[in-house]
Design a protein around this nucleic acid. Structure first.
Lengths: 225, 225, 225, 225
DNA sequence: CATGAATGAGGGTTCATTCAT
DNA sequence: TATGAATGAACCCTCATTCAT
């Protein structure tokens, strides 16, 4: 017996697929589980997606596209921030991190799946892609910071970048596993602070302290208000 | 027709299994691929392993046992190192890291598989286990370091530990992907140096600089000799 | 390419399974043979049955349930028959036997399989169950008949029951092997007559003769009319 | 490591095979179980038997040959017994039954297996063979008895034979399931007595009573002495 | 004779995908 | 669009049998 036509079928299938993929991983997810979760029949799945993998890619692409956009925007705004002096640099950096981690939180379940390999070996390159991109961004930032005199001159930029990216990577992996939303701003302020103590010049550390204090107090006011 | 008896069959199967698991992940690896890689017939697999998963576990356990032993040894020796002053602490820390990363390198292919989720969702807890243990060790070290006066007093130990562990985690994930063996000592010296600049007191940073210099020059002499 | 939908698939699978099970026994029957016999693909089997054994049990349960119902009904009606005197007792006994043997004939192929062990050792207890139940019923009847004075007083009830049950058991085993339907009424009249000569008092033997004659002439009229 | 040469290997394999066949049936018995039970290696089995089925046949043939011999001997002696009058006929009949049932008891485990279908459908014809032969013997005896005037003249010989054979068949099936040896003489005396009440003339019944009494008292004296 | 590792044909079961309705 | 029975290619694991030692 056909179900009443429902324009949301595709959306419901995607939602079901997301849930099942998250529970089982791509390989172990069964199409029938997905359609059951969506309240539809097995055949319906193939009206909307060519294959199981296609549905997976589509679910991923949402999250990845958002992250890509954030990175692109940040990249574009970097030069302008640099002109604004130390505090603007820190401010821009912090804002980019916030955008990224908020997006990770929003898509945490599917991101977690991919981060943990549940998307099958075939999808692992995506994580590497993203992680490498983060690392390269870090390295560019380190080099840029050194050139601008914000960072200590004795750094080996690549190694520093690996380490910084690693800190953030681990932060991200933890975030996607949390059940309740942590105070992302606090986490990132802390992370930046650590990075800056490792890499930055005293001047930059001071600038960061100002930015951080301002942000945190503003955030607390917002929370309590 | 049976093949000539070959006492290395089990080893060859393990080697084949490792290779195929690494290529495809546990779920997508076919037993027949494994036995073909080992130059044996399908049935031979089941003379040596009860199931495909059993073979996987066995391959894993070698690597995990070694890492476990290193951590246990290090833990046991820590107190003694602490008595030896700043340089002994740094020395002990560096040595432990070296042992771990050498072991990771030795088992890099299978470790990479697990780190990247190729062992099926079922095995992911192992990574978390190890990562959490690294994080907890980091946190203990940070608290210990703060108490001893080696680390800055204004740190939030948990956040610092997450970040430090993250740096090492990322380092490990990179290491297991390398084709040629990098200079592990140099990587770790760099990593420690970054951590110390982020966390350590000037005294400790100086002590570390000595230890690092000694180790590096010794290592270079060995390499060129 | 899927076959055109056919609502009789399950029935056809059961029919195919019955045939193949009967030919080969449970263990040696291949699922693919069954589905071929049903004109379906191997996978179709698992749309309708969880396992090969399940299909077997289902085929059995039909026959067993019918036999169980007949025995229960007969048991319930026994006391009333006893009140009707010797002829009613014989009549009731004969009718029960007829119901059972007609049911056996209806399900002869599967009953034969189980009787002959084709359902794997696992199913043999079912035969014992049924045979023991028949023996116990026999023994109850013998004791009852002795108490009522219908049977000779010098019988050892258990041994007599074993023997009577054995006669019927053998009759059943022969029946399920026949290609063409024998005259079941005649068989049973004969069997009863033998039992009664072995066990009964002259009065009961005379009563039985009347009942038998009436039944047979009625049956012959029906056959020729 | 080869075991010390042991001339009893074949016997031990047969004993092991018998045990395992009895436990599991032909199809479900594994060659390795058999050789383990015999304390030998899997290969040894094939030094002594061409296939698993061959070993089964060999085990069976022992029991079947003995039964066959008993039947042949009895058949040969029948005419002579007939000349000896009623008591000699009963005596001969009883002795043959005793020989058969003692043989069944001796080989009860393997006989039970075959009777219950554990030898796979392929072997079921053997039971039918034996049962049919018993039935035919019964029928010959009934006809013979009727001709001699020992049996009632109004019998339908075939039906009577089915019933008698059935009683013995059931007796045999029960015997092979017993754990402890029952009093076979008593069982058979009882069975004969029932048959004779069903089939025999008063003269034969009296003759049988004499034979039975003599045999039982002799047996009791033997048991108590 | 004995060993037991090796072989490889099976066969039960799963599940992505198709398509008649 | 929706349905869900049907398909059939996989794939894991078993086990009778072989044979180099």
């Amino acid at each position: 017996m056909p179900r009443p036509s429902d324009p949301s079928a595709r959306a419901r299938l995607l939602a079901g697929a997301r849930r099942i993929f998250i529970d089982r991983g791509l390989d172990r997810a069964k199409v029938e589980e997905i359609t059951q979760a969506a309240g539809l029949s097995k055949g319906a799945f193939y009206l909307h997606f060519r294959t199981k993998e296609d549905a997976f890619k589509e679910i991923l692409s949402g999250a990845l596209a958002e992250l890509g956009a954030i990175l692109a925007t940040a990249e574009a705004a970097r030069a302008k921030a640099a002109d604004g002096g130390a505090e603007a640099v820190v401010e821009h950096w912090l804002q980019t991190d916030l955008d990224i981690f908020e997006s990770l939180w929003k898509h945490r379940s599917i991101m977690r799946l991919v981060l943990e390999g549940g998307g099958s070996p075939d999808y692992h390159h995506l994580i590497e892609l993203f992680a490498d991109s983060a690392e390269q961004t870090s390295e560019r930032l380190v080099r840029f910071g050194m050139k601008q005199g914000y960072y200590r001159a004795d750094l080996e930029p690549h190694q520093a970048a690996v380490f910084v990216a690693g800190g953030y990577d681990r932060l991200a992996r933890r975030l996607v596993r949390e059940r309740r939303k942590p105070d992302i701003l606090a986490l990132l302020v802390n992370a930046q602070s650590l990075c800056l103590h490792a890499l930055g010049t005293p001047a930059l550390i001071r600038a960061a302290a100002n930015v951080h204090a301002a942000r945190l107090s503003h955030s607390r006011r917002a929370a309590s208000g």
